[in-house]
Amino acid sequence: MNREELKAKLKEIIEPYVQNKEALENATEETSLLLDLEINSAHLVDIILDMEEAFDIEIDDENAERMMTIGQALDISEKLLEED
């Protein structure tokens, strides 16, 4: 899966939790999950669990801690997929 394909899949995963749908349509790698997409922080763990299942990876606490933007979520997914 290349980065564009990963990004499309990631957007699909986070969509149900996004409150600012317009921001998701125009999302860039710098888009903040909490501040721009207005995802409730209680749903970050849902997103992490969904990503683990969709990409067959395990996101540990250290990686989860830095997953605040679309770009960071993609970086972590790519890194874990490569390690796999």
């Binding site: 909490l34 922080s41 763990v45 606490d61 801690e65 605040m68």
Partner: peptide, 25 residues
């Protein structure tokens, strides 16, 4: 959960240079 979140929001105000992070535990 709500106690974690409320304390995190105080922490972020106490540390104006701190970037946002996610570490509920």
């Amino acid at each position: 959960w709500s106690a974690k979140e409320a304390a995190f929001k105080v922490f972020m105000q106490q540390h104006p240079l701190q970037e946002r992070f996610y570490a509920p535990k």
